[in-house]
Computed example of a mutant assay.
Amino acid sequence: MNPNVHKTLVMQLQAGATERFPVLAHLSYDADDPFAVTAVFSHDGHVLARWRLDREMVLDGLHRPVGMGDVRFRPVSTGVWEELRMEFLGDARSDGERHHAVVFAWAPAVESFLRQTHEIVAPGQERIEVDHFLAEVIAEG
């Protein structure tokens, strides 16, 4: 079985109070990093942002509001359409404020991606090679 899952979704980036425009989100999962999902957002061939997300937090965000820091998720229902609202706070801007983005994803597509990751590493079965982890931490240090 392939220890990786990749899925590209069209999501909606909210610009301003109500306007949205489409962006591509390249989601990936690697069994060697079992707790994380990577999301790369792009538009017109340019990478807008790359986030490493907690897989369990993404799943929880489909059902209830989660997150208190730089990343927050919550379900949004329009009655017909089920979405995952993802809010990201980034680095400081020159005006002292922080970069801020809100992205909406079709919830069933995110759920499908997560189901594929669970087929590779089931929730609660995640393991990390401690020696490999320590080597990475020391190398980054």
Score class of each variant (00 low, 15 high):
Glu56Asp: 15
Gly124Ile: 05
Glu87Lys: 09
Gly79Lys: 05
Gln14Trp: 02
Phe133Trp: 13
Asp33Leu: 07
Val137Arg: 03
Val110Phe: 05
Arg52Phe: 03
Val37Trp: 05
Arg98Asp: 11
Glu126Phe: 13
Leu27Ala: 13
Glu83Asp: 09
Met11Lys: 00
Ser112Phe: 10
Pro22Ala: 08
Pro75Thr: 12
Trp81Gln: 12
Leu62Pro: 02
Arg127Asp: 09
Asp44Arg: 13
Ala31Cys: 11
Val130Phe: 02
Asn2Met: 08
His99Trp: 12
Met68Asp: 15
Val71Ile: 15
Ala25Asn: 04
Arg72Gly: 00
Leu114Asp: 01
Ala15Ser: 11
Pro123Cys: 06
Tyr29Glu: 03
Met68Leu: 14
Asp60Ser: 15
His99Ala: 15
Leu27Asn: 09
Val121Ala: 08
Val5Met: 01
Asp32Lys: 14
Val102Lys: 04
Gly16Gln: 07
Ala101Gly: 15
Met68Pro: 01
Glu140Ser: 09
Gly61Asp: 02
Phe133Met: 14
Glu83Val: 10
Ala49Arg: 12
Arg115Asp: 14
Arg98Pro: 01
Val37Ile: 14
Asp33Trp: 06
Glu129Cys: 09
Phe104Thr: 08
Val130Thr: 12
Asp70Thr: 12
Gln14Leu: 03
Glu136Ala: 01
Asp95Gly: 12
Pro123Asp: 06
Leu89Pro: 00
His46Ser: 12
Ala31Val: 07
Gly79Val: 07
Asp131Cys: 14
Ala107Phe: 14
Ala107Asn: 12
Phe113Leu: 08
Pro123Ala: 07
Val23Pro: 02
Glu82Lys: 13
Phe21Gly: 04
Asp30Val: 00
Val103Asn: 05
Val80Gln: 06
Leu84Met: 12
Leu13Lys: 12
Leu24Ala: 11
Gly69Trp: 01
Arg127Gln: 14
Pro108Ser: 13
Gly96Glu: 03
Ala36Gly: 13
Arg20Asp: 04
Trp81Tyr: 05
Pro65Val: 06
Ala17Met: 01
Leu9Thr: 01
Val80Lys: 04
Val137Asn: 03
Ile120Lys: 06
Leu59Glu: 07
His46Trp: 05
Ala107Pro: 05
Gln14Tyr: 00
Tyr29Gly: 04
Gly90Gln: 12
Asp54Tyr: 03
Arg115Gln: 10
Pro75Met: 10
Leu84Asn: 06
Asn4Met: 13
Met11Asn: 03
Val40Gly: 04
His6Val: 10
Ala139Met: 03
Asp95Val: 02
Phe21Ser: 02
Thr38Cys: 10
His132Ser: 10
Ile128Glu: 13
Asp54Val: 01
His100Met: 13
Glu126Tyr: 15
Ala122Lys: 12
Trp51Leu: 09
His118Thr: 13
Asp54Gln: 04
Glu82Gln: 15
Arg50Ala: 09
Phe73Ser: 04
Val58Tyr: 04
Trp106Gly: 03
